[in-house]
Amino acid sequence: MSMDAVDVAFTEAAVGAGISPLLMLATLAIVGRYQKTSATLPSPAAAFILVFITGSLLIVGTLDMPAFGAADAPAQLHVAPRYIHLSGEEIGIPNMVTSVLASYRAYDTLGEVVVIFTAGIGVLSLLGFSNSQNNAYFIDKIIAQDEHKILRIVAKILIPPILLFSLYVQFHGDFGPGGGFQAGVIFAAAIILYTLFFGLEVARKVINQTFIRVLASLGVLLYGSVGLVSLLSGKNYLDYHVFADDPQTAQHIGILVIELGVGITVACVMMLIFFSFIENIKQEEVR
C-alpha cells in the first residue's frame, strides 16, 4: 500500500494468500509429506558463499540506481506520463491501471491470458483429463468421515456473498481496484471453499467439468474475437472505436467485454487446476 499499487495488492491478496498455498499443500498431500531427506546437495556453505557474492554484487550494482520515489527516474519519463495525463480523457474511466491493462496494452494482456490458458491445458494434460466416472475420490472419503457441520453452515452463508463480491470486483474494475484477473481468482476461491466442505463429487455436479473447460476456451475466444471484430471493421487489432461513435463509450464497451473474457478464463482455469490437483490425492499404499 505504501507503494500505491492498489490493484497489485488486490491481486496478491487474492492469489498469494489463497490459491497458491492451497496448491502447494495439495501437492504435498499428493506427494506425501514426510519424505526422508537422504542427503542434501553438496554443501550449504558453498551455496551460501555463492549467494552472498551474488547479493553483494547486486547491492553494488544498485548504487547508481535512481532513488526510491524519485519523480525523474527513467521509468517515469517515457510512456507513463502519457497514460497518466491522457487516459482520463481518452478512455474515460478513473482507474488508470484498468485502462492501461485493457486498452492501451490489451495486446499484452491477451498474451498473458493465453499463457494462463496454456498453463491450464498443461496441468490438465499432465494430471490426466479424467472424466470422473469412478466416484471414489479420497477427499470425499475424508469429508464423509468428518462433516464439520458448523463450517458447512458458515460456508453456506459465506459463499453467495463471495460470489457476489467477485462480480462486484469484475464490473467495478473501471472505477476502483479490481478487474477480471482478481474477480476470477476470488470466484475460484469461493468454489474451492465449497469443494473442501461438500466434496469433489458434489462440486463436480455444481460445476460441470466439460462446461468449464469449454468456458475457459470461450473466455480467450471472446477476448480474441473482440480484436477480430475491430480488425474486420478496418481498424487495428483490439481497437475499440468500432463499437460506438463516441470514443469513450466505445472504450467502455471494449474494456467491459475484455475484462469479462479475462475473468471467465481465469476463474475456469483456476477451478480446473484445483480440481485436477485434488482428484489426484490418493491413499498412500503401505509398503
Binding site: D146, H148, I150, L151, V154, I157, L158
Partner: peptide
Amino acid sequence: LFILFTSPTASHALGKAAWK
C-alpha cells in the same frame, strides 16, 4: 460482518482439528 463471521469459525475449526 465478515470478521465477526469468520474469526470465531476459524478458531473453532482450529480447535477441532487440533483435538481430532
